[in-house]
């Protein structure tokens, strides 16, 4: 959460400052680069890499590859844990889930067909972006793009984009998380979450439920912020690949039956996987937070000084 709000405070507010307004911007020629954009424009990148390689210009090729390398490093370190430990967007809807003590609408589990919506969205935006040669998700669906310049010269399209961002943002970052106490943006609207659920399997850390001590009380399912545990999953003692490794279910389990483990249950219950995972998560999360948190603190201090001393 700290990371997410520091990102808003430092990076996004700076963009508004640069552009003058969130509505009509002067000139921001590039779509801001983030992990969500990387996953949703995957084919565009591959095509770009192909063109760069065939053009023989290594300098054009290497910066994009560096991004892929850092993503691979983070995925090997924490896998899907990125979404709860390092993502600078995930903390936003999490904040609103924390504002209520109990969910107003008790929607504790989703049908599998609906939980897979983010995967369908990922496929759709990857293909659409490739077909249109544009970052379609960023241009139309990402509520976090609201403070950034819109590329289209057509005013009507710019306004449609702004409206789309605003509606999706209010719904999926504020209202739905407040009502159901779950991370709605991460669950339904984030293609990177679906992407990590697919490729994060290469990461050795898993969350496992101990069948011997599990009492099938479904407390883990109720507290899971991203609907990674279903009633069928509880019965089979399985956690789906959408699990963000946040650890909320560990604390909620009355018998302590849920643990981090290596691979498919190795060393489950031992302190070792937990220690390794938490160190990895803090290292990755800390490295990402260095991009925003110190600068956000400086900015905040500056604003406080201005407020009190003029």
């Amino acid at each position: 959460m700290i990371l997410a709000w520091a990102f808003i405070l430092e990076f996004k507010s700076a963009l508004v400052g640069l552009a003058g307004s969130a509505w009509i911007t002067k000139d921001v020629q590039e779509v801001p680069y983030c992990h969500i954009a990387i996953s949703s424009t995957l084919l565009n990148h591959l095509h770009g890499q192909y063109l760069a390689i065939t053009s023989g210009n290594f300098l054009k090729w290497s910066p994009l590859t560096a991004g892929a390398f850092f993503w691979l490093l983070a995925t090997l370190s924490i896998g899907q844990g990125w979404c709860s430990w390092a993502c600078f967007y995930g903390g936003l809807d999490t904040t609103f889930t924390k504002l209520v003590k109990k969910p107003i609408l008790k929607l504790y589990h989703l049908p599998r067909s609906l939980r897979d919506f983010s995967l369908a969205l990922l496929i759709a935006v990857v293909l659409f972006s490739f077909a249109r040669s544009e970052p379609s998700y960023c241009l139309w669906l990402c509520p976090l793009k609201i403070t950034t310049g819109f590329l289209d010269p057509n005013t009507l399209i710019r306004r449609m984009q702004f409206s789309s961002f605003a509606i999706l943002g209010i719904l999926f970052i504020i209202l739905i998380p407040l009502f159901i106490k779950k991370r709605a943006f991460c669950t339904f609207l984030c293609p990177f979450g679906a992407w990590q659920a697919l490729v994060g399997r290469i990461n050795p850390f898993k969350v496992t439920i101990n069948a011997d001590t599990c009492t099938l009380c479904q407390q883990c399912m109720k507290v899971c912020p991203v609907y990674a545990i279903s009633p069928e999953g509880v019965e089979k003692h399985e956690v789906s690949s959408y699990c963000n490794r946040c650890g909320d279910c560990f604390d909620a389990c009355p018998t302590g039956a849920i643990h981090y483990s290596f691979g498919s249950g190795h060393l489950s219950g031992s302190i070792l996987p937990r220690v390794f995972f938490l160190i990895s998560a803090w290292l990755v999360g800390g490295s990402v937070s260095l991009l925003f948190v110190p600068a956000a603190l400086v900015r905040l201090t500056h604003w406080i000084n201005l407020f009190f001393h003029g």
Binding site: R112, D116, A120, L121, I123, A124, L127, F128, S136
Partner: peptide, 21 residues
């Protein structure tokens, strides 16, 4: 079966998106 459902959702999303376009 799971991917058939994902394909169904993706068809609606892609179809709807291109229809609007």
């Amino acid at each position: 079966d799971r991917l058939k459902n994902v394909g169904f959702l993706a068809s609606l999303l892609v179809g709807g998106w291109f229809l609007l376009t």
